[in-house]
Design a protein around this nucleic acid. Structure first.
Lengths: 238, 238
DNA sequence: TGTTGCCTTCTTGTCTGACAATATGATAGC
DNA sequence: GCTATCATATTGTCAGACAAGAAGGCAACA
C-alpha cells in the first residue's frame, strides 16, 4: 500500500485550482510579466485562468498576505511596487538571514556538503560566462536551497523565500548592470573560500559585504526605473 | 480637503466582513481560545461568525498564509501547533530583529523618545507587581510599538508582528512560570539602562540575552504542555 | 482651460445554492 | 482487537445574483 501511495504521491499534492492559479500569477509577478502597479481585475483573471471568481478571490487573499499585491478598500488589487525604503529594508533583513545561514552552514556542513556548494558555484560561474541570466537565477536558487537544506532552518527558508519573491524582479534587473555579475561572482568566491577554510566569521562577513553590494546595485536600479511611470497600469496577460 | 479626509478616516477603513472575521478568529487563536490542533470547520465558522462560506474561505486563506493555521489536502484547516524546533526558530529570528531594533533605537531615538520608553517600562513594572498578565501583555505590545515606530522599520514591524502572533500563546504561558516575570523585568531594566547611556552595543547584547532567556522559558513550557494531547480537537466557540 | 457635478459603467464585497470528490466516523464482520 | 464497508460530513469548485462603491466620461460652468 505504501508503495502505491508513494507512486501516486509523485503526482504531488492534489492540484487545487487555487494553488495552480496562485503559482501562475505569482510567477508572472516574479518574472515582471505583471509589472508593479498593474491592476488585477477579478473578471479578467477568471477569464485568463479559466477559473471561477471564488477561486480567484481566494488566490488574491494569499497574494495579498504574501505582500505580492496590495489591496486597499474596495479597489482592484495592484501588483506591489517597491519604494526605495522598502527595498532597502528587504535587503537589510535578507542580509541578516543570509549571514546567519552562511555562518551556520560553515559550522555544521559536512565536507561533502561544502563540495556540493562549490559544484553549484562553479556552475554559476560557468553560466555567467555565457551570460545566461535565466540559468544563473536558477542556479542561485539551487545554491540557496542547498544552504537552507543543510542548515535546516524552516523559518528562515520561508521568510527568505517571501522576501526574495518581493525583490525578484529587482534582483534580475540589477544583475544586468555592467560588471555587476562579475563582482557578484568574485564575492561569492570569497565566501566559498572562507567556508572551505571553515572560517565562519569571515564567511559571514563576506556575505554581509556581498549583501550590501547587492543592495546598492538594487537601489541604483530603482533610481533608474523608479522615476518613471507610477500610475496604475492595465493588466495585459499572464 | 485633507483635513476632512483625516477626520473621516477616523472611521477607519471600511469594515469588510472578511477582515472582521479574520481578526476575530486570529484573536481567538492568539488568546488560546482556539487551541492549537483545533479543527476549523467552514460551516461552523459560518454559523459562529454569521457570514457566508465564501467569506470564511477567504479569511482562511489569509490565516493560512500567516501560518496561524495549517491546511493540507482536502482536510479541515487546523490551528497551527508548534514543534520545539519551530518555536526555537521563531525565537531565534525574533532575537535577531529585536537586537537590531534596540541597537538602532539607541542610536537614533531622541531623549524624549527614550523617556517615553522608560515611562512604558515603569508601567510594566507597576503592572507586574499586580500580576495583571493582560495589562502586562498590552504594555509590552505598546513598548514594542514604540520601538518600531521610532526605528521606523516597516518590514521588521510586519515580520515581528507575524512571529509574535505565532508564539503569543506560548509567551503568555511562559510568563506565568514562577520568577519568570521578575527576571524578564530586570532584563528589561538593564536594556533600558544601556539605552539611556546611549550604549547601543550593550543594549543589543542585553536584548540578545533577554531573548535567549525568553526562548528557554518558552521551550521549557512547551515540554510541559507539549507531551500531552496531540490529536485534533473539535472547535468549541469563538 | 480647468474645474465641478452628474451619470453610466465597471468592479468589488457578499450571499446563496449546487454538485462532485474526498475525508471522517460508525458499524459490522473477522 | 483489527479491518473492510458504508453513511455522513466536509472541502473544492462553480454559477449566478445583488448592493455598494470606484472609475471614467461628458457636459455645464467659471
Amino acid at each position: 500500500m505504501s508503495v502505491l501511495a508513494d507512486k501516486l504521491s509523485l503526482l504531488g499534492p492534489p492540484v487545487l485550482v487555487r494553488e495552480q492559479a496562485f503559482e501562475q500569477v505569482r510567477d508572472a509577478i516574479l518574472a515582471g510579466t505583471l509589472a508593479p502597479g498593474t491592476r488585477l481585475i477579478e473578471r479578467e483573471l477568471c477569464l485568463a485562468l479559466g477559473i471561477s471568481r471564488a477561486s480567484v478571490r481566494e488566490m488574491i487573499r494569499r497574494l495579498e498576505a504574501e505582500r505580492l499585491i496590495r489591496v486597499e478598500g474596495r479597489k482592484s488589487p495592484v501588483v506591489s511596487t517597491l519604494t526605495r525604503k522598502q527595498a532597502a529594508e528587504i535587503y537589510e533583513v535578507r542580509a541578516l538571514f543570509e549571514s546567519l545561514l552562511i555562518r551556520r552552514f560553515t559550522d555544521i556542513a559536512s565536507d561533502a556538503e561544502i563540495a556540493e556548494l562549490r559544484t553549484i558555484f562553479e556552475a554559476v560561474r560557468e553560466a555567467a560566462t555565457k551570460n545566461s541570466i535565466n540559468e544563473i537565477v536558477a542556479l542561485m536558487r539551487r545554491l540557496n536551497e542547498h544552504l537552507v537544506h543543510v542548515v535546516d532552518h524552516e523559518l528562515i527558508e520561508d521568510l527568505l523565500g517571501q522576501l526574495n519573491a518581493r525583490i525578484n524582479w529587482l534582483r534580475v534587473k540589477a544583475m544586468t548592470q555592467p560588471g555587476r555579475l562579475e563582482t557578484s561572482i568574485s564575492e561569492l568566491s570569497a565566501i566559498l573560500e572562507a567556508i572551505e577554510q571553515r572560517d565562519a566569521e569571515r564567511a559571514a562577513l563576506a556575505m554581509a559585504q556581498s549583501s550590501a553590494n547587492a543592495r546598492n546595485a538594487a537601489l541604483e536600479q530603482l533610481l533608474m526605473e523608479g522615476s518613471g511611470e507610477r500610475q496604475p497600469k492595465k493588466m495585459r496577460s499572464i
